[in-house]
């Protein structure tokens, strides 16, 4: 009896939800013709939605992987896999990140799960920095965008890897512990071990949903801000600031941060600046953007303490800037 009622109620709930949406849909088609909205707002909305639509597949893959880690990987696994030596752990995580074809939209939930499972926070940050930056698709698109010149693509990957290592070492010496927000102090499930596979799989999917809702608001806010920047901030005004190497490097890094482009597509945008800026600044754009951008920073805030996120941002920006300035004579 209860079972019957329950299955019916599921149907009814689903049905109500669908009806509500249909109503919204019909409302929408009426509104589209009646309301006049300034074109710049429509541009803004189109860019905003396009970032989200493009990011969703990657975010969903990210939260599913995070859900899998949460349910199927135990602390014992992690402590067996990760080297005891702090530096070895960082080198390993950066290398794993380089092999792992992640996207910056999807990587934050994975990083959070790894830290929750006992991966040292510095190693997880190393993984977060190399994951989106170094992978075959990014290498191919960079190579293409710069007129089949292997130099920029090679520099992007090699310098990116070195910078990620340095950042992770610095973070490792500055921070201990998980750095999670207080409300999220790390406790892992002790009650999942005695379940069968199907139950585990089911709760993995539920975890993925929760993870999605934790991330979604930050992803959406980030996409919105990035769209505002694209719609209202002229690239030219930025260019007027930057004429020297240092200024133009700072400008390009700022641009990479605010545009929040996907690492697989940013090479084409970067390449379009190569006539006005030196290679150093272009590399700043290409290396800094995938490591940290506006969207990503907001998503990190959903997990880590504000102070920690800001420190990571500052250390990454500082390291990229200093390394590229030191090498600018050679590039």
């Amino acid at each position: 009896m209860i079972r019957l009622l329950r299955s019916n109620i599921l149907d009814i709930t689903g049905f109500t939800v669908i009806l509500a949406l249909l109503w919204l849909l019909s409302l929408g088609s009426g509104l589209k013709e009646t309301i006049v909205i300034p074109p710049s707002l429509l541009n803004l909305n189109t860019i905003f939605l396009s970032i989200l639509i493009e990011a969703f597949p990657f975010v969903l893959i990210g939260v599913l992987i995070a859900g899998m880690i949460q349910i199927f990987v135990t602390e014992e696994h992690i402590s067996k896999w990760i080297p005891k030596n702090k530096y070895m752990a960082i080198v390993m995580s950066c290398s794993v990140g380089a092999l792992f074809p992640a996207c910056e939209c999807g990587i934050v939930p994975i990083v959070r799960r790894l830290v929750g499972k006992g991966v040292p926070v510095a190693a997880a940050i190393g993984f977060m920095l190399t994951g989106p930056l170094i992978n075959p698709i990014v290498i191919a698109s960079t190579y293409m965008a710069f007129g089949n010149d292997v130099k920029i693509a090679a520099l992007r990957m090699s310098l990116g890897f070195i910078i990620a290592l340095i950042v992770a070492f610095i973070i490792g010496s500055l921070f201990k512990g998980t750095q999670f927000k207080q409300s999220f102090s790390a406790v892992t499930h002790s009650h999942i071990n005695n379940k069968n596979f199907f139950e585990k799989f089911w709760s993995m999917l539920q975890h993925s949903i929760d993870e999605f809702f934790d991330m979604a608001k930050y992803l959406i806010a980030g996409a919105f801000l990035a769209a505002v920047v694209q719609t209202y901030m002229p690239a030219k005004s930025l260019l007027e600031i930057g004429s020297g190497t240092a200024a133009s490097l700072a400008v390009m890094m700022g641009l990479a941060f605010f545009l929040s482009l996907c690492s697989e597509a940013d090479a084409f945008i970067g390449a379009s600046f190569s006539s006005i800026f030196p290679a150093t600044s272009i590399l700043g754009f290409l290396i800094f953007g995938p490591m940290i951008d506006l969207k990503n920073t907001l998503m990190m805030m959903s997990v880590f303490r504000f102070k920690f996120v800001m420190s990571v941002l500052a250390v990454v920006a500082g390291t990229v800037f200093i390394i590229l300035m030191l090498l600018s004579g050679l590039l």
């Binding site: 909205i37 710049s40 429509l42 541009n43 909305n45 189109t46 209202y232 260019l239 006539s275």
Partner: peptide, 28 residues
């Protein structure tokens, strides 16, 4: 659901620094 999608127009091209990227592509 409520707003129509819009084809990007020349105001976006302007913000993206159209002529700079056009000049850029030839030099590249």
């Amino acid at each position: 659901f409520l707003l129509p999608a819009k084809v990007l127009d020349s105001s976006i091209a302007d913000k993206k620094g159209a002529m700079l990227s056009i000049a850029g592509s030839s030099k590249k």
